[in-house]
């Protein structure tokens, strides 16, 4: 809201509502898809995700937005992983949209194939979304994803990043953050947890392909997330969105804290939110209330060892990473 009176102080204040999902005070256009009774519920009740699953949420957010933007013309392909398992155990599916699951490592190609069919049939209305977890994206599905980027196929690829192979029992992926405990990077030995200076940051790799649109998003900021999905759908060609989705099981956090952790990840600087077009960074979502990385880490058992005095060097490394992100993506 713009201010006009000169006799006003400018101080930091709040105003009811803008960051909530809906709010009756907001104009319809400022509400979210999730606030509407007409949202498509692409993933519906009865799915078997754990309590407080961030991925169930992220997927519904993204797909419902895409559904609205395209007037319900979405076909989704899914990599093997939690999302696939908890939505489609025979005899029940939680999907309300056309959806296909093939394999763990091929979802990008399956989606490209669907897009190729639509192209061959001259259907420019129906759009394709590929989705997978971080393992299915950054590791086993990486080659197919890179091929999709290379060909610039008309597919929006969404990676739900929870930093590990949660479906198989929390093993390390190349998206697991440094220091994190997983079943294959236990907090034992001289360098407890996952190694530092390893891993892939796929959004940057996607940018290097110079595809039309790359964005990172988080389940805690629905307005930002929906805007990015909507933006992504305004482009033709390959697009990539990576959504940070906390996993209570894998992170050792409370189910009720899923959104809170997503928020803390962003506000600590460890999860940078930004957008890029054709390989160039165009915008970053600013941190609203910066918090120390420790606040974020201590809410997760996977980092418990990092906060012990003996591992202060690890904590420093994580702090430095947050600072690097803040600088690189201009988060403040």
């Amino acid at each position: 809201m713009t201010q006009k009176n000169t006799a006003e102080q400018t101080v930091k204040f709040y105003q009811t509502g803008t960051f909530t999902v809906g709010n009756r005070l907001l104009d319809e256009e400022f509400r979210t898809v999730q606030a509407t009774e007409e949202r498509s519920n692409s993933i519906d009740s009865g799915h078997r995700a754990c309590q407080g699953c961030g991925q169930a949420l992220g997927a519904r957010y993204a797909l419902d937005t895409a559904m609205r933007v395209t007037n319900n013309k979405i076909i989704a392909a899914n990599a093997t992983g939690c999302l696939e398992v908890f939505t489609t155990p025979y005899p029940e599916t939680a999907w309300s949209i056309p959806w296909v699951h093939s394999l763990f490592g091929n979802v990008a190609s399956v989606a490209s194939g669907i897009a190729a069919t639509l192209k061959a049939k001259g259907d420019s209305e129906t759009r394709v979304i590929a989705q997978g977890g971080d393992g299915g994206t950054t590791d086993i599905g990486f080659a197919c994803l890179s091929g999709l980027f290379d060909r610039n196929d008309d597919v929006l690829y969404i990676c739900y990043d929870n930093g590990g192979y949660m479906n198989t029992g929390v093993q390390r992926s190349s998206a697991t953050p440094g220091g994190a405990r997983t079943a294959t990077t236990m907090p034992v030995g001289e360098h407890p947890g996952s190694s530092f200076n390893t891993g892939k940051f796929l959004p940057a790799i996607a940018m290097a392909h110079e595809i039309p649109y790359v964005a990172t998003a988080s389940v805690h900021d629905l307005h930002d997330l929906e805007r990015k999905v909507e933006k992504a759908m305004s482009f033709r060609g390959a697009r990539y969105i990576q959504i940070n989705v906390p996993c209570p099981l894998g992170w050792g956090s409370l189910p009720a804290h899923t959104i809170k952790l997503a928020r803390m990840g962003v506000e600590s600087g460890l999860v940078p939110l930004f957008e890029a077009e054709y390989g160039e960074l165009t915008q970053s979502t600013k941190i609203r209330y910066q918090i120390p990385v420790e606040d974020y880490l201590k809410a997760q058992r996977r980092f418990a060892h990092v906060l012990k005095p003996a591992n202060v060097a690890q904590l420093e490394t994580i702090r430095a990473l947050a600072e690097k992100n803040i600088k690189r993506y201009a988060l403040l």
Binding site: Q3, E8, Q9, Y14, Q15, T16, G17, R263
Partner: peptide, 8 residues
């Protein structure tokens, strides 16, 4: 957190 910033 959900309440937004604005000048008073």
């Amino acid at each position: 957190w959900y309440y937004s910033d604005a000048p008073r």
